[in-house]
């Protein structure tokens, strides 16, 4: 009975939270020019490998200290343009807990391409405990799990600001224009010059935000390019088929009315 009351009150809470959200606390992020939205309705979308490689670097040097990427395998990095040796090399920089071995013990070993990205914390509670109770979400689906995901992520990373007059932000929280409710536990993670690029790209917050978003958009939707290429073929086939069927129909119906 208690659980049911609890559940119902959560639901009621949900409706009241929904109302709070409607009061104008959410700012719609402006649209950005992403290569994966290339073409009308994004039909010619593609991932920019250089941008994704820089994004991976940012993830590994900055985000990975708090955020996991637990649904992505090292072998998936092939899509970023890395060859087998490079992927093996990246994977081997991680320590993976494996086991139990023949003696029943867990043991550490270097990562392999068939491993997933190693999470920074052993479990969700450890992640919360290390971050003042705020849970840093897994990033493997983050651009799909937010409305206008890539635009939102870019806007969030570049949207830190001083709170407007009259708004109080308590310790450990940070004002962000685009975060629902504006008070975000994550400190501004990126700033100009923080990560060094080897390919001469500008080392600015704007570029960092674009690159990490590009990388995470791929992580959330790794089959996007294959999907859109297949889609174009399917659509062309269906349109031709529809044309054929239209003339078949016309021929069959000739004389019927």
């Amino acid at each position: 009975m208690f659980i049911r009351i609890l559940t119902v009150s959560f639901v009621l809470l949900g409706f009241s939270v929904q109302n709070a959200g409607a009061a104008g606390d959410q700012v719609s992020p402006p649209s950005q020019p992403w290569s994966f939205y290339n073409g009308p309705a994004g039909v010619f979308g593609y991932y920019d490998q250089a941008s994704m490689q820089r994004g991976l670097k940012i993830y590994r040097e900055v985000c990975a200290s708090c955020h996991s990427l637990k649904r992505v395998y090292f072998r998936n990095l092939e899509a970023l343009g890395y060859n087998e040796a490079q992927i093996k090399n990246i994977a081997s920089e991680y320590t993976v807990v494996d086991g139990p071995n023949d003696e029943g013990d867990m043991f550490d070993r270097p990562g392999k391409p068939s491993d997933k990205f190693v999470s920074p914390f052993a479990n969700d509670n450890a992640a919360k405990y290390a971050n003042n109770g705020a849970f840093p979400p897994d990033l493997s689906l983050i651009t799909k799990a937010r409305a206008k995901g890539p635009d939102y992520l870019y806007a969030l990373l570049t949207g830190y600001a001083q709170p407007p007059a009259g708004e109080h932000v308590s310790g450990g929280q940070h004002w962000n224009t685009y975060f629902p409710g504006h008070k975000l536990s994550m400190a501004p993670p990126l700033s100009d010059g923080q990560v060094s690029y080897e390919d001469g790209s500008p080392e600015t917050l704007d570029q960092y935000a674009r690159d990490i978003t590009h990388f995470l958009a791929w992580a959330a939707d790794p089959y996007m390019e294959e999907r859109k290429k297949t889609g174009l073929k399917v659509l062309i086939f269906l349109l031709v088929f529809a044309g054929v069927m239209y003339s078949v129909k016309k021929k069959v119906w000739k004389g019927a009315h």
Binding site: R227, L238, L239
Partner: peptide, 13 residues
């Protein structure tokens, strides 16, 4: 087939 064009558009794009 015409219906499938709209359906396929959503599936793929």
């Amino acid at each position: 087939v015409v219906f499938m064009v709209a359906y396929a558009f959503f599936i793929f794009f």
